[in-house]
């Protein structure tokens, strides 16, 4: 039997024999005191060995561990005392943990906690971030769906591309709804007159005749002549053409635009328009208020003496020449069948 075992047995027997007389001998303090007394050690000797205040040792022997500021000190001193007396540290700590009057563990709450309570927004922030993420995902889905629908159901842009415009002769018209056709037939001039141009998209516009039926949703850009005052003179080939209703789309009203090259003179200016063969279509001084229309597909060469006083439109779209074609007030450029200036 080892010395340690003997010590434990002796101390426990002593504790049993004096339990009614000395209640302080309950473990772990009672065991400490019993072991110390068994070894004949005065408390002062323990004090000098462990450098611990006497009152703390007495408190430990009386199981008054609440005198320590924190469990770390209580457990630390208990461990040292047990080690010094040769007792099992683990057993002593286990007995210590079973006590009810333990020092309170530090909470580490800073003194500044007396200030207004901090409101924790982290939950709200998290929810907001997830909501934003969800919105972004849904938005992406809608966008994706919007770009993958059947192209037939998408509205065709108003400014459609001009594909053909023979100078003379009738042009085959796109298939039209018979009902819409008959409804428009009353306003449509005779078929003998050549239309200004045919388009592959249902955007076919008359020249500035002032009488442009069935154009309820005309785009001002695509049909500038519609907003302009009535023009006195109209060249041959310019005529009012009703809007075409696309049969595939079903009653889709389209705007009308002026066909061919239209020259509106706002102030006196010299104007020259030459065909590709050099033939003079317009040549000479033009006066304010005059309007000249040159039908056909072009290309033409256009020379304007006072460019700022003349407005040139091609198939309803204003032709604008860049500064590279300008020399002072004079502007000279070519325009092709697609309206491109070069």
């Amino acid at each position: 039997m080892t010395q340690g075992e003997e010590l434990v047995e002796t101390s426990s027997s002593q504790a049993v024999s004096t339990v009614t007389v000395l209640p302080v001998l309950t473990p772990p303090g009672g065991r400490l005191r019993a072991a110390r007394e068994l070894q004949g050690l005065p408390l002062d000797q323990v004090v000098s060995a462990l450098r611990v205040e006497k009152k703390l040792l007495e408190a430990m022997e009386a199981n008054r561990f609440e005198v320590f500021d924190a469990p770390v000190y209580a457990r630390g001193y208990l461990r040292q005392y047990a080690k010094f007396l040769g007792l099992s540290v683990e057993d002593m700590l286990a007995e210590f943990d079973g006590l009810s009057s333990l020092p309170v563990a530090p909470t580490h709450v800073p003194l500044t906690s007396a200030a207004p309570a901090f409101r924790d927004w982290s939950g709200v922030k998290t929810a907001a971030k997830f909501a934003l993420l969800l919105l972004a995902v849904l938005g992406s889905l809608f966008w994706w769906r919007g770009h993958n629908v059947n192209p037939v159901s998408v509205a065709v842009p108003v400014a459609a591309r001009v594909v053909a415009s023979p100078v003379d002769g009738p042009v085959p018209m796109p298939a039209k709804d018979p009902v819409a056709d008959s409804a428009n037939s009353a306003d449509t001039p005779s078929a003998g007159g050549p239309p200004a141009g045919a388009v592959d998209a249902p955007s076919l516009s008359p020249v500035s005749s002032g009488a442009t039926p069935a154009q309820p949703t005309a785009n001002p850009l695509a049909n500038p002549a519609a907003n302009a005052p009535a023009e006195p003179s109209v060249e041959s080939g310019s005529m009012a053409v009703p809007s075409v209703v696309d049969a595939a789309l079903g009653a889709k009203t389209q705007s009308s635009v002026a066909a061919g090259l239209v020259i509106d003179v706002r102030g006196d200016s010299w104007v020259g328009v030459f065909s590709s063969t050099g033939e003079r279509q317009v040549y000479g001084m033009q006066h304010a208020g005059q309007s000249r229309t040159i039908s056909g597909r072009g290309p033409w060469r256009v020379v304007l003496g006072k460019a700022d006083r003349v407005r040139v439109t091609f198939n309803g779209q204003q032709v604008t020449a860049g500064p590279e074609y300008r020399r002072g007030d004079l502007v000279s450029y070519h325009i092709d069948a697609t309206g491109r200036v070069y």
Partner: peptide, 27 residues
């Protein structure tokens, strides 16, 4: 002076860091 050894001294720094991270969120 009295000298005490903390329990599980090897992990004190890491455990303390974790506790400080929690406390810094609360305060």
């Amino acid at each position: 002076l009295p000298v005490l050894i903390a329990e599980d001294p090897l992990t004190c720094v890491a455990r303390g860091g974790g506790r400080i991270l929690e406390l810094s969120q609360e305060h």
